[in-house]
C-alpha cells in the first residue's frame, strides 16, 4: 500500500520533464480552470445552504420539542381562575420545568404582525396562553391532557407536534436538495474536465504519436495529461472556493436583516468545510481525465 502511494506521489509530483512533453498552452487550460472555479463557487453556496438547513432543522426540532403551549378559552370572568388552575396542574406534572402565562403585552406582540400595534386586546375575546418549558425527557402529553380535561375544561394543549414535523421535514428536504446540488456540481465538473481533456488529447494527437514512437507507455502519456488537468482543477476550485467563502462571509447578518435566508453561512469549524472542495475537485478531475485519456489512447492505438 505504501509502495503504491509512493508510486502515486512520484507520478503526480515528480516528472516535471514528463509534464513538459505536453504543450502548456491551449483553451482547454483556461476552460478547466474557469469551470472548476465556477463550480467550486456554486458548491460553496450549496454547502452553506446545506449546513444552514441542517442548523435550522436542528433548531426547530430542538426548540419546538422543548416547549409547548396551553391555550385556555374561557369566559372573561373565569379565565384567570382557569389559568391559575392550569398552572397548578402543570407545576405538579413531572417533566415540566416551568409554566407561565403570557402577559397581555406578549400576546399583543404576537398578534401585531397580523393586526397592527393598536389592537385593543381588552375588547377582544382572546384565549389566554401558557408557555410550558419541558425538562428531562418531557412530560406525558396523554396523561396531562386527561388531567387538564378534568380540572381545566377550557384548556387545549398544543405540544407543536402537528406543525413541527412538516417544518423539520421541509428543512430536511432543503438539506437534501443542497446535497443533490453538490453532487450535480461534481458531475458537471467531471463532464467539463472530460470534455476539456478529450479536446486536449485530440489537439495533441501528434504529441501522442511522437511519444509512442520513442517508447512511451500509455500510463506515462495519460499521466502527463492527468497531472495537468488535476492541478488545473485544483487551482480553479481553490480560487472559486475562496471567492465563494468571501461571498458567504459578506452576506448580511441575521441581526441586520433577519429571516431564514440570511442564516445561510458557516459557523465555527464549518468554515473549514469549503476547503475540502478543491481537493475533491482535483479528485473528480483526476478520475475524469484518467478515464478520458486511457479511452482515447486505446482508440488511437
Amino acid at each position: 500500500m505504501r509502495a503504491l502511494f509512493r508510486q502515486f506521489l512520484w507520478r503526480f509530483i515528480g516528472g516535471a520533464q514528463a509534464d513538459r512533453s505536453v504543450p502548456p498552452t491551449g483553451f482547454t487550460a483556461q476552460l478547466t480552470v474557469f469551470a472548476a472555479a465556477a463550480m467550486a463557487f456554486l458548491a460553496v453556496f450549496a454547502l452553506a445552504l446545506s449546513l444552514a438547513t441542517s442548523r435550522l432543522a436542528d433548531r426547530w426540532s430542538e426548540e419546538l420539542a422543548r416547549t409547548s403551549t396551553l391555550r385556555i378559552s374561557a369566559p372573561a370572568d373565569q379565565a384567570d381562575a382557569q389559568v391559575r388552575a392550569a398552572i397548578g396542574v402543570l407545576e405538579t406534572t413531572p417533566g415540566v420545568a416551568s409554566a407561565r402565562a403570557l402577559t397581555a403585552q406578549e400576546q399583543q406582540a404576537l398578534l401585531t404582525p397580523w393586526f397592527g400595534p393598536d389592537l385593543p386586546l381588552e375588547t377582544l375575546s382572546i384565549p389566554k396562553l401558557i408557555e410550558i418549558i419541558e425538562e428531562g425527557s418531557g412530560y406525558d402529553a396523554t396523561g396531562l391532557r386527561a388531567r387538564l380535561q378534568a380540572e381545566v375544561p377550557g384548556a387545549v394543549l398544543d405540544d407543536h407536534t402537528s406543525w413541527r414535523a412538516p417544518l423539520v421535514k421541509a428543512a430536511g428536504r432543503l438539506r437534501s436538495l443542497a446535497w443533490v446540488s453538490i453532487v450535480l456540481i461534481a458531475a458537471t465538473t467531471a463532464a467539463m474536465v472530460t470534455l476539456a481533456a478529450q479536446a486536449a488529447l485530440a489537439a495533441n494527437a501528434q504529441v501522442i504519436r511522437v511519444m509512442r514512437l520513442v517508447g512511451a507507455q500509455d500510463s506515462y502519456i495519460a499521466w502527463a495529461f492527468i497531472r495537468r488537468f488535476t492541478s488545473r482543477a485544483f487551482a480553479g476550485a481553490l480560487m472559486g472556493s475562496l471567492a465563494g467563502m468571501l461571498g458567504v462571509f459578506f452576506l448580511p447578518s441575521t441581526d441586520v436583516a433577519g429571516g431564514f435566508l440570511t442564516g445561510i453561512g458557516f459557523q465555527g469549524v464549518h468554515w473549514l468545510w469549503p476547503l475540502a472542495i478543491p481537493p475533491l475537485a482535483a479528485c473528480v478531475a483526476f478520475f475524469a481525465t484518467r478515464a478520458a485519456a486511457l479511452r482515447r489512447l486505446k482508440e488511437q492505438s
Binding site: 509512442r212 514512437l213 520513442v214 517508447g215 512511451a216 507507455q217 500509455d218 500510463s219 489512447l297 486505446k298
Partner: peptide, 9 residues
C-alpha cells in the same frame, strides 16, 4: 500496447 512500447525502446 505497453509491451510494444518497451520494444520500441
Amino acid at each position: 500496447r505497453d509491451q510494444i512500447a518497451l520494444v520500441r525502446r
